[in-house]
């Protein structure tokens, strides 16, 4: 048992963390039925998955603001985002694995696993460090950084009241102009076009674009859909 901890029926409370012992309701163990249902009842499957993401909300952070950002992010991912467009702007292939009919389900499940990894805890003893714990830490750091960037995107879109019409909303949420900025990587003619502009909006697009581009590269390697 962990040192200096208070143990209750449902949790172990240490000096830094509250560790929830009864984790069944937060995990999605039975996946076969989801795959079986997917073809006919996509909507109900997505609802099941959305609920699982929402249940992890208290684990994301102690701060309400971060938890709200997480929910806004999940809601946007489930309802609005055109991921195939976003992906096609970075990876210029025909679609790869994404063309498989069960790809959305598979990738969402892997993303759920990624978020679960980011919020899980495994006890380590002195002299017995676990690789999986380091791996989970990397997941947590990525989630933290991702939510910081998502907060920025949400905030710049919120500045004007009619959210749908702001350029930031169009840039980061609808058309993904921040990912198009890398198209001129090595092409001299388009490089010149990029050179014309010096304004802050384009620099911001480049900064956020680099982050999102790396997220998409990572997604493609892990099979997730962050």
């Amino acid at each position: 048992m962990l040192k200096n901890s208070i143990v209750t029926k449902n949790a172990i409370i240490t000096s830094t963390n509250t560790l929830i012992k009864n984790n069944v309701k937060y995990l999605l163990i039975d996946r076969q039925s989801l795959f079986a249902q997917w073809e006919n009842e996509q909507k109900s499957c997505l609802r099941i998955l959305y609920r699982r993401f929402a249940r992890l909300r208290p684990f994301i952070s102690n701060r309400g603001m971060v938890r709200d950002t997480y929910m806004d992010y999940i809601r946007y991912k489930f309802i609005k985002e055109d991921y195939s467009l976003k992906r096609s702007l970075v990876l210029k292939d025909e679609g790869g694995d994404t063309l498989h009919p069960q790809y959305p389900l598979k990738s969402t499940l892997k993303t759920l696993d990624f978020v679960t990894k980011a919020v899980s805890f495994i006890p380590e003893r002195k002299g017995m460090k676990l690789c999986i714990a380091r791996d989970n830490t990397i997941c947590r750091q990525i989630m933290k950084n991702l939510l910081t960037i998502e907060y920025f995107k949400e905030e710049v879109s919120r500045w004007q009241k009619t959210k749908r019409e702001t350029t930031a909303y169009i840039d980061y949420r609808l058309k993904f102009n921040h990912l198009k900025i890398f198209d001129c990587e090595n092409d001299e003619s388009s490089k010149k076009e990029c050179k014309k502009t010096k304004d802050k909006r384009l620099i911001k697009l480049r900064v956020i674009g680099e982050f999102d581009r790396n997220i998409i590269f990572m997604n493609d390697m892990l099979g997730t859909r962050l």
Binding site: T8, A11, I12, I13, T18, L19
Partner: peptide, 16 residues
């Protein structure tokens, strides 16, 4: 006392 986790105000994590 019996649900101290609700008031502990520490970062929550899933325990394995």
């Amino acid at each position: 006392l019996i649900s101290f986790e609700r008031w502990s105000d520490k970062r929550k994590k899933l325990f394995f």
